[in-house]
Design a protein around this nucleic acid. Structure first.
Lengths: 206, 206
DNA sequence: TAGATTGTTAATCGATTAACAATC
DNA sequence: TAGATTGTTAATCGATTAACAATC
């Protein structure tokens, strides 16, 4: 059973809000509470939770601890996900330090760059290798996901290499559309588009 | 007339691909070419272009130069958009250097941080001020959009201040949901969610 | 109990795609 | 012309929301 993308996104948000509430000492939560903290609707929350087969109590809502665990079973599965990041510029560093702060099921296990200054240095707890070492490290560290934060010019070439070495998913921050075989999952994020979207709706808002 | 969010996103992508093709000396482009470069469908491209009221030629497709201009009229409007960025950590720097590289209609006109080391320094061509100067600079520079790349703990407090000073749109990279009045446009991006989504689909992919 | 809640189906809404006439 | 293309309506698909029975 595979869940819709939108539900997966929301489950990821639910989990962090739930952890947050748990830390504050809360043990139960109603769908309308969870919804209002995230600006979703209560029905949507209940429907998503229905989809993952968890049921709350009618009196007290959902048991936060249990719901977190159930979301974990769905999102994390049994396996730990190892990722690499390609391009240790500002964006690469931002993402890496973001991830190795929290303890999650996802770990950035190695970084790559072409800048000699960075090679073999440990940046935000991750060791940086020359980009020619991708194959070697992918095999060694059992990597399934790559985060691409490198300059667009080199992106397709690196992507081809990742595909050759059996990458399964790519999170692409280079603003160019990559040519990747169908069976590999690619998630694109383009910050220029985000920004232009905000500008558009700001200018068309009265 | 206000266009759907999804069309706006695609128009932003079209424009950059078109610029790219123009640079390569191409003058006309078919809907199927544009589509395949972006992994969209030709119908979708034609429909979006129809929505902005541009018509191509049946023989040669769209005139790239004209289409770029028409998309510009839609996305940029008449006005230049001035933005500020709050939080000059790695993510803030990444975004700023990304934007002031290209010449676009959107300009990051000032940055803010609390770190004394950064105050009054020029980072990626943008001067950094203490966060207490937000009101002053917003008035002075006619700011309509804020990019939030600061630590989540301080985010809501800063957001309240932005709202008080009349911000019109927010691009929110702090992973927490902000409490913002309805009439202000907020675009959230949460990289943990993106990453968890990739991991999920990678693990559920056979 | 009465009121508030969950779980779930059916209806609605919005976005994508199929189909095709018009045109060069 | 024949073939390829655009422009656009209608059909489809998918996601959200409304409605409501069941339950504590």
């Amino acid at each position: 059973m595979i869940l819709p993308q939108k539900s997966i996104e929301r489950l990821s948000r639910y989990r962090r809000i739930l952890l947050n509430n748990l830390e504050k000492g809360k043990e139960h939560i109603y769908s309308h509470e969870l919804a209002s903290q995230l600006h979703f609707t209560p029905v949507q929350v209940r429907r998503d939770i229905m989809l993952i087969g968890y049921t709350g109590t009618q009196r007290k809502g959902y048991v936060i601890k249990e719901l977190i665990d159930r979301i974990g079973e769905i999102l994390d599965g049994e396996s730990h996900t190892n990722a690499i990041i390609i391009g240790m510029g500002n964006l690469g560093k931002a993402i890496t330090s973001y991830f190795n702060g929290k303890r999650t099921n996802i770990e950035i296990a190695a970084a790559f760059d072409t800048d000699e200054q960075k090679i073999n240095r440990v940046i935000s707890n991750v060791r940086c290798y020359h980009i020619s070492k991708i194959k070697e490290k992918m095999d060694e560290l059992d990597i399934s996901v790559a985060i691409m934060t490198l300059a667009p010019e080199a992106a397709q070439e690196v992507a081809d290499q990742l595909v050759l070495n059996g990458i399964k998913g790519i999170l692409n921050f280079t603003s160019i559309p990559l040519n990747i075989p169908e069976h590999i999952y690619v998630e694109d994020y383009d910050m220029v588009t985000s920004m232009e979207k905000v500008a558009y709706f700001v200018n068309h808002n009265e």
